[in-house]
Design a protein around this nucleic acid. Structure first.
Lengths: 224, 224
DNA sequence: CGGAAGATTTAACACTGGTTAACACTGCAT
DNA sequence: ATGCAGTGTTAACCAGTGTTAAATCTTCCG
């Protein structure tokens, strides 16, 4: 599933067409037909992205967008707007919209915009550090941090450490690591891995509670 | 001065009235009376917005609008039309119009629309900027901005940075970049790319959270 | 206890990538 | 034309990365 989408569109038939089209592309879509329902569903469904028609009964798109922004100031909101309503665009941005699509629009256009917004918010979310004993590790940046003292790891070192951390306190099979990090499971790669284990042990030596233990003939286990 | 307006209106007296009215509101207006002249003036005057009468001698508004769109695909174009036929509106949008105003119209109406479009194009202009860590990057203008301090990049630098940003946090294959930016994938282009990566790293060095990570033998990844 | 296999560690090595500077080419102004 | 500034390429040298080799240590089991 590529993402959860809340679609608020009061023209039922149009809404269903959009929903089906997005469904078939691997999105999970909740379709509501008025603004009031949109807020309710937003709370229970926690969508990754919101697509709002501006003109809807009970609550219009702007009103909905303002309320959603109070619940979640990050979720991307795309407005659907009639072609010649230029003032809408201005009002929309002021009410927290991220993007506008003018009706009529092609499904391709909508999907492109949805994907780009999902990617952006995913990126913002993925900025994360993992704690491991006294250390913090950032896989994306390949940085190992001990009380503010940063060490930059190489790519392969990061890959290996990342796997160990992801399955900490579990035994990792030698061939599992080899296939994942080296892509092959042969004699030389295995020797290479031994060298990398040594390197990582050195990096982690300042916390005596962290250990990479060898299970003879099987593999390794990172214990914390 | 609130903005430069190119006004093409063949009824001289009406044109002058509009011009004076806009002048007095703080706009800078060039008034031309035929389509041919409109294109000429467009090139030299670089208006922020274009107001076109549809019915004009030599070249009609649609023709002018099409030519302007080839020169500048962003400048807002407002049509003035005596007709109220749906087909004209459709033709107009297909030829790149942003808005229509039916004659007769009040000056207030025209001014409101002009202001809206100027605000929208300002918004659109601002959307050309992509945020990347502490920086903002404008690909079209090849400008990298750090807290108002602007650096102008060269064309190739921009191309490369743009690709890295577009696929931030993803690994870009060396040959993918080479084909896209250099058009070839040979030894010398590859070395050249290495030099450019160094240059871009220097440009981005003031945000320690931004990194261009090398994946040995594979390619690069811009992480934020 | 002794030997074999596996694991660890260090170092040498090959190769890729990083950095700097010289160079060639282009467009521009004098 | 001549010189100048900017852009991108080539070259040379250096640093970083991962692989291979070899020496040593550990564990297991007869």
């Amino acid at each position: 599933m590529k993402g959860k989408i809340l679609l608020a569109e009061d023209e039922i038939s149009l809404g269903e067409i959009i929903k089906e089209s997005l469904d078939s592309r691997g999105f999970l879509v909740e379709h509501v037909a008025c603004g009031k329902k949109a807020i309710e569903v937003f709370k229970s469904f926690s969508p990754d992205i919101v697509v709002l028609d501006i003109m809807m009964p009970h609550k219009d798109g702007f009103e909905v967008s303002r309320e959603i922004r109070m619940l979640d100031r990050n979720v991307p909101i795309i407005f659907l707007t009639a072609k010649n309503r230029t003032q809408d665009v201005i009002d929309g941005f002021e009410n927290g919209a991220n993007d506008f699509i003018k009706k009529p629009f092609s499904m391709e256009e909508l999907i492109v915009r949805i994907n780009s917004h999902l990617r952006i918010s995913k990126i913002n979310f993925e900025q994360q550090w993992v704690s491991i004993g006294k250390y913090k590790f950032n896989f994306e940046h390949q940085i190992l941090d001990l009380h503010g003292k940063e060490t930059t790891l190489t790519y392969k070192e990061s890959l290996l450490l990342n796997e160990l951390i992801k399955k900490r306190n579990q035994v990792l099979d030698r061939s599992y690591i080899l296939n994942l990090v080296w892509g092959t499971d042969d004699f030389f790669s295995a020797r290479s891995m031994d060298v990398f284990i040594t390197k990582i042990r050195k990096y982690l030596k300042d916390d005596p509670l962290i250990k990479i233990v060898n299970i003879r003939g099987i593999g390794y286990k990172l214990v914390v």
